[in-house]
């Protein structure tokens, strides 16, 4: 290659991935945008009629599920953060030579399929399963007590399934922090708690942010946990979209819901980034 073409080389490396994204992300997105604005039926065929009315219509029809998904995901993100932060902190600062083993344990659940893991939670939480059943037998719990089919079951399932997505970025962020900085803080009259709040926590914010996104975004669209662990009262928007697409063949409606979900997630992430401080991300 002639010398003056050298500058092209880095861009050449972008081509395979770029083509991939074009074919499997950009094109489907445009197709879906078009589908959401079409009208018709499976029998008569669809035509692009720029039917923007489907958007407010869908919001009106599925507002509770929509809202529920966002709330569940916010709670799930908060819970994974609350459970995952101490975990990542301990592995990063106290893990010593067991660090890699502990990290392996964190990602070990990924070796089983998502559905299998969630199904096993159904067994664990079942009304007469070995946990609740035994607790009921010894009279610790009322016979009518149940977890399965409640929001608690769905939120627990989601929290469990997304915990590694929170722990790993947190670990990476915490691992990078020089323990000398904490020593320096305590040398400068900060108690252990103050050193954590003033030094460790702010420096781990990129991990908090990344982990929150990796948990929140897939959790909002999740259609497995509520399906398996929930009930009609816990239906999430992902399930609705899935049903509209695959069961009702209501493609424009499903596509419109999908786009609105995306818009809602983008808006919330934007607000969150402003709140956390987006410059933390790029540092």
């Amino acid at each position: 290659m002639p010398r003056h073409w050298r500058w092209l080389v880095p861009y050449l490396f972008l081509i395979p991935g770029g083509l991939w994204l074009l074919a499997f992300f950009v094109v489907p997105m445009l197709v879906m945008a078009s589908v959401s604005l079409q009208t018709g039926s499976l029998g008569t065929g669809y035509a692009l009629t720029w039917n923007f009315g489907v958007y407010p219509e869908m919001i009106g029809a599925w507002a509770p599920q929509f809202e529920r998904s966002l709330w569940y995901s916010i709670v799930v993100t908060a819970l994974t953060l609350a459970v995952g932060y101490p975990m990542a902190y301990t592995i990063a600062f106290r893990g010593g030579r067991y660090k890699s083993i502990l990290l392996l344990l964190v990602i070990l659940p990924f070796f089983t399929a998502y559905i299998i893991r969630t199904l096993s939670w159904k067994l664990i939480l079942a009304d007469n399963g070995f946990v609740l059943g035994n607790l009921k037998d010894i009279g610790f719990l009322d016979d009518g007590f149940r977890i399965i089919a409640t929001p608690i079951a769905v939120i627990s399932g989601l929290t469990y399934n997304f915990l590694p997505f929170m722990v790993l970025p947190l670990y990476v962020a915490l691992e990078k922090i020089d323990p000398k900085l904490v020593e320096a803080a305590t040398d400068l009259y900060a108690s252990r708690l103050q050193a954590f709040l003033r030094v460790t926590l702010p420096l781990s914010m990129p991990g908090v942010f990344a982990g929150s996104l990796l948990t929140f975004i897939p959790a909002v669209g999740d259609f497995i946990n509520s399906e398996i662990l929930g009930s009609r009262d816990t239906t999430m928007i992902g399930q609705i979209i899935q049903r509209l697409f695959l069961n009702n063949n209501a493609y424009p409606e499903a596509a419109a819901l999908g786009f609105m979900l995306m818009a809602a997630v983008l808006a919330l992430v934007f607000i969150y980034a402003r709140f956390v401080g987006a410059d933390e991300l790029t540092r």
Binding site: L181, A184, A185, T186, D187, A190, S191, L203
Partner: peptide
């Protein structure tokens, strides 16, 4: 006494300045 209760201060190797 822990470091924060001692009238000593330290200049660390590689400084340990707070990057944030």
């Amino acid at each position: 006494l822990p470091p924060f209760k001692r009238a000593t201060n330290t200049v660390f190797q590689n400084y340990a300045l707070f990057p944030h």
